[in-house]
Write a protein that binds this DNA or RNA. Structure first.
Length: 447
RNA sequence: GGCGCAUUCGUCCAGUGGCAAGGACACCACAUUCUCGCUGUGGAAACACGGGUUCGAUUCCCGUAUGCGCUGCCA
């Protein structure tokens, strides 16, 4: 599962690295063993590749867990320097003392001089005075009073190190100069900076990009919102469209344009121009952009993109036929997955039966129209133009315009009231199947 | 509660100390059309509020309100 928010951050990082000639580092922050798995990592790598970031675009992946020794050593050093201390307070005890489950740690064990032991976590002792200034490319200099920064845990009772310390250690050893991440991390920045300084380093430059929110303006979350990049991919969003849309959340290229080639993004993007307020992930707009990208595709490419969806379809596809249908379908799908119901009539033995369409189209003169159409088509030259002409004449005999006349024929042959241009479809369907379907519809009508 | 961040059409983004506040999505019309779609044209739609600063504020400053994020031995 790769979160769209993570994807956007990754894109921002990627573009910045490209522009500056720097190196993008992919680090899997797996310090909490229980929450990670190889599949998880694979999913991320696959999703990045889909967006255009293959292994050559970044260094890594590095697994934070592989650095556990170094992390433990840093924890030990901080302890020895008196910058960290052991604490045996349970969550419950802390809440009991502070009377508030959201007040943070109260410093109870600061001077108890506890040694390492079971149930004892290591806490970093934040300074009592002064302030920590975070230099952020988007937000100026958010400043935090050190006194309000709680003594946070840097190593768990089992000795494993938390991500705050692990990040500082890894950032330093990997020479990280820029950290671009979600705003939810802004309050972690001063803590990490304190760690950097305690460890003798100079903190990186930060850029905390606003969170992406749902329609209720809450941060997109895995449990309540659709956030998995692979889900969008599976629905038929194109990587280019997703990439373009993600960049548009908080930023825009110059001029009155939104849909731009990736090269333009790479050229024009400036992290400091990114908006500082949360952006709504608007699937409607994503979809519209996807439709634009689909229409921009050369038809062969469009066909190729459709392939995976056709393979999953409940029918066998004749590519010769599909190639004829593709140009008709291309302007009509906004998601690649929509291709299936659009062309199924050509591959199914019988058209799908959609009751709504049937009742809507098979009203009064339908039976006569179908009878006349069957008659007119029996010996018609099998071209779209001629099929159209003949049906027009059928309609004229009933005082109907083509718009009305075509409805029953469309539903009889394709099963639906809307779809690809009818006469081209019939031409591709062929005389035999067309006539058989009309006959079947007539039979059903008279039954 | 504390700390931090934010506030231009419903949404995403432009923008300026004096603008008819611009584009896109969505929406509504109209045109085109064999359905749908595409396309084209047009429409409705915003500077959160209150004080300042200023000749003049959407734009600068301060408050208020509202929203969001964090406040874990998660990351």
């Amino acid at each position: 599962m790769f979160h769209v928010g993570g994807a956007r951050s990754a894109l921002f990082n990627w573009v910045m690295a490209k522009q500056s000639g720097g190196t993008l580092v992919l680090r899997i922050e797996d310090t909490d063993a229980s929450r990670n798995s190889p599949e998880w990592t694979e999913g991320i790598i696959r999703a990045l590749a889909w967006l255009g970031m293959d292994g050559g675009e970044y260094e890594g992946p590095y697994f934070q867990s592989a650095n556990a020794d170094k992390h433990a050593e840093a924890a030990r050093t901080l302890r020895e320097q008196g910058r960290a201390y052991y604490c045996d307070c349970t969550r419950e005890r802390i809440v009991e003392r502070t009377g508030d489950s959201h007040k943070g740690y109260d410093g109870f064990c600061r001077d108890r001089g506890l040694e390492a032991g079971p149930g004892r976590a290591l806490r970093f002792r934040t300074p009592d005075e002064g302030e920590t200034v975070v230099v952020d490319l988007l937000r100026g200099k958010p400043t935090f009073e050190n006194a309000v920064l709680e003594d946070f845990v840097i190593a768990r009772a089992d000795g494993s190190v938390t991500f705050l310390l692990a990040n500082a250690v890894d950032d330093m050893s990997q020479g990280i100069t820029h950290v671009v991440r979600g705003e939810e991390h802004l309050s972690n920045a001063p803590k990490q900076q304190l760690l950097w300084e305690a460890l003798g380093g100079t903190p990186p430059v930060w850029a905390h990009v606003p969170v992406i929110v749902n329609e209720k303006r809450q941060k997109l979350s895995k449990r309540r919102d659709k956030v998995a990049l692979e889900d969008y991919r599976a629905e038929g969003y194109l990587a280019e469209a997703m990439r373009n849309y993600l960049m548009l959340l908080g930023w825009a290229p110059s001029g009155d344009r939104e849909i731009v080639p990736w090269e333009v993004v790479v050229e024009e993007f400036r992290i400091e121009d990114v908006n500082t307020s949360p952006a709504f992930f608007d699937v409607k707009k994503l979809r519209a952009i996807n439709g634009d990208y689909i229409r921009m595709l050369p038809v062969e490419k469009f066909v190729a993109e459709c392939l995976p969806f056709l393979e999953d379809a409940p029918f066998e596809v004749d590519m010769g036929v599909f190639n004829q249908l593709a140009p008709l379908a291309q302007t009509r799908v906004a998601l690649l997955s929509e291709i299936v119901p659009m062309v199924d009539f050509a591959f199914l033995d019988k058209p799908v039966s959609d009751e709504q369409s049937w009742t809507k189209a098979m009203k009064e003169p339908a039976a006569e129209i179908l009878a006349a159409a069957e008659e007119a088509y029996r010996d018609a030259p099998w071209t779209a133009e001629e099929l159209k002409n003949r049906l027009e004449q059928v309609g004229a005999a009933h005082g109907l315009k083509l718009g009305k006349t075509q409805a029953p024929v469309r539903v009889a042959t394709t099963g639906r009231t809307v779809g690809l241009p009818l006469f081209e479809s019939l031409e591709i369907l062929g005389r035999d199947r067309t006539l058989a379907r009309i006959a079947a519809a007539r039979a059903r009508l008279s039954a």
